[in-house]
């Protein structure tokens, strides 16, 4: 019996030694546990972390934390100030966690995920920005404000009114740039409120509203880019040229699909809805906006 225990302990210490010597097994072993992934995330988000912060955030016993910190010995290091920092391998592990957040939370079939269409859309999704963090990310907030301001300005310059993710003109209202600008901001808030209301009423998802609002403007990034491109076509007076006109329409369609994907991703990431339900919400709102434009235009 004693011999058996000794053999087991020897085996375990042998495995431990192997993990310490080879970075790859250690890397995957570390990412294999929820608490270890969270420790890496917490240290990665702030650059460093103290034991007290880890204990407060993880809400597990001191022994458990020490056990996981020991396991992560090649991914994190404790410096003289007693705080924990990521090693080079730890930074790679943190990057891997952040980059794979889409594939982790999405319930997508492998064939679907491997297609160039979805890979392309995932590549165009700013996953690092649209991910839930505990602290307000000022970079994201500034970026959101910039998108809103530039979107509003180019809406005014093009003389267009936004209806969710679509753009159109209102014949009865004369060209009023300031009104166009305000309409863009109003559209942003109304769109967010409708999605929030649908999530709360139909799916009972009340969480992460503030975080969702802070990154919601990212969904309008493709719209803002389209407005800039459209404005340049107008300024250069090439919009009347056959193929430029078609190109303008195709860019609008592609950028709308991109916006719809970002919206779906945002709903999945913040409201924890299934991707299918998020797509249904995006789809119905998009065509709701279209119907509004059509009714107003007629």
């Amino acid at each position: 019996m004693r011999k058996g225990i000794k053999i087991n302990t020897e085996n375990e210490s042998k495995k431990e030694k192997e993990r310490n010597q080879e970075p790859e097994p250690n890397f995957y072993y570390a990412l294999g546990h929820k608490i270890r992934r969270r420790i890496i995330e917490l240290i990665g988000e702030n650059g460093f972390s103290s034991f007290t912060v880890l204990k407060k955030e993880l809400n597990v016993s001191t022994g458990t934390i020490y056990h996981h910190l020991d396991t992560l010995s090649t991914l994190i290091k404790q410096k003289s100030d007693k705080k924990y920092y990521l090693t080079e391998l730890g930074i790679r592990a943190y990057d891997s966690i952040r980059n794979n957040i889409g594939s982790i939370s999405f319930d997508i079939s492998k064939k679907d995920y491997d297609s160039f269409l979805l890979k392309g859309l995932m590549y165009l999704t700013p996953k690092r920005i649209m991910v839930k963090t505990n602290k307000p990310n000022f970079f994201v907030i500034i970026l959101s404000i910039m998108i809103l301001i530039s979107g509003g300005i180019f809406c005014a310059l093009n003389g267009l009114y936004p209806f969710f993710l679509l753009f159109g003109t209102i014949p009865e209202i004369p060209y009023a740039p300031f009104f166009n600008f305000l309409f863009f901001l109003f559209n942003f808030f109304v769109f967010f409120c409708i999605i929030e209301a649908i999530s709360r009423i139909f799916y009972k998802k009340k969480e992460n509203s503030k975080e969702f609002l802070s990154t919601f403007a990212i969904i309008f990034l493709p719209s803002a880019l389209y407005l800039i491109i459209h404005y340049f076509f107008l300024v250069l007076m090439v919009i009347e040229i056959t193929f430029v006109g078609i190109l303008d329409n195709i860019i609008m369609i592609i950028f709308q699909v991109w916006s719809l994907w970002l919206l779906t991703y945002g709903i999945v990431a913040y409201k924890q809805l299934r991707i299918e339900n998020a797509l249904i919400i995006s789809l119905l709102l998009h065509y709701g906006g279209f119907s509004l434009i059509l009714i107003i235009s007629i």
Binding site: S109, K111, F290
Partner: peptide, 25 residues
């Protein structure tokens, strides 16, 4: 298994129809 790809392709397809309707109707 390709349902998400199918939905995105349909989004693109319907996009063309939406533009046509908004311009013509």
């Amino acid at each position: 298994e390709y349902k998400l790809n199918s939905v995105i392709i349909n989004f693109i397809g319907l996009g063309f129809f939406l533009i046509f309707i908004i311009e013509i109707v």
